[in-house]
């Protein structure tokens, strides 16, 4: 499949959001220079696509292909080597208040209880008011942690920690939510529940009209369940292998994962994911 320059594909109507471009990845290449050898190793090469206002985009790719690198570049934590990432038309210079990142590991502060961990992002942005504090408590309740508000991270399960992580990211009402395999370390059951919760929160949380998300995963089912649009990254260094619009109705329920349409998208994603392999996976069921 050819890489589609999204600038040309504007006529295609998104399922949600408007036609305004929000995130632009303009021929972006990112790499690391080894401190030991000084050799430059590319992690992302020539990523070129746009994300529209309101889209829930899932990036999928095999492990080590450069997904985290790209997401952290959007977050402003990793500098871009070539090209430019723009948000709302402005080139990224570093982290910004309009963006939040849910880290792959929960990375909560162990010396703060659940409430204070969530309040940290507000505190850091000097936005601690009775109003935002109340919002934090609502959000903690929304992610189902009302009863452990005073507990410390070491007293929580992995799933609970990721909920705190999510609440900490959401409480600043970001325009763009970045999630790096947030459920990757969870067991299958918890993971399924959290995906459902995320969809629910995504729809329920008071995030203003505009809410963009970039969600990273290596799990095909998770990708199809969550996405308005899936970007498939090739093996390292990551380039855009496919750009798939998931035309499944919302609200999506876990039961839909067994539906033929769902499986069709899953197979489509899989076929692109294994495209670069010498022994590509057959997508036999695709035709059914």
């Amino acid at each position: 499949m050819e890489i589609r320059g999204l600038e040309e594909s504007l006529p295609e109507a998104p399922l949600s959001g408007s036609d305004t471009v929000y995130v632009e990845s303009d021929h972006v290449s990112i790499g690391y220079r080894s401190k030991r050898t000084g050799i430059y190793k590319p992690a992302c090469s020539d990523l070129n696509f746009n994300i529209k206002r309101g889209e829930f985009v899932v990036i999928i790719g095999s492990s080590g292909c450069g997904k985290t690198t790209f997401l952290e570049a959007v977050a402003g934590l990793v500098p871009v080597t070539r090209g430019e990432i723009r948000i709302g038309g402005h080139a990224i210079k570093g982290p910004g208040k309009e963006r939040s990142l849910v880290f792959q590991s929960p990375s909560l502060f162990p010396w703060r209880n659940v409430r204070d961990n969530v309040l940290f992002s507000l505190q850091a942005q000097r936005n601690l008011t009775p109003e935002t504090k109340a919002r934090a408590e609502d959000l903690i309740a929304l992610v189902g942690l009302k009863d452990v508000m005073e507990s410390y991270p070491h007293e929580l399960s992995g799933g609970m920690k990721q909920r705190v992580n999510l609440a900490r990211a959401l409480v600043t009402q970001p325009q763009l939510l970045l999630l790096d395999e947030p459920f990757g370390a969870l067991d299958a059951q918890t993971r399924e529940m959290m995906q459902h919760e995320l969809v629910r929160i995504w729809q329920a949380a008071d995030l203003g009209e505009a809410r963009n998300a970039i969600f990273i995963t290596h799990d095909v089912e998770e990708a199809v369940f969550l996405a308005d649009r899936i970007l498939v990254f090739s093996k390292s260094p990551a380039s855009l292998a496919a750009d798939i619009r998931v035309e499944l109705p919302r609200p999506r329920l876990p039961a839909h994962k067994r539906s033929p349409e769902f499986l069709k998208f899953q197979d489509l994603v899989l076929s692109y994911l294994y495209q670069g392999d010498s022994n590509p996976r057959e997508s036999a069921e695709d035709s059914r």
């Binding site: 934590l77 982290p95 963006r99 990142l101 880290f103 590991s105 990375s107 940290f120 992002s121 850091a124």
Partner: peptide
Amino acid sequence: SDYIRVARMCCAG
């Protein structure tokens, strides 16, 4: 180093 990244991401001064 996760703590540093969280602080940076939250735009902590």
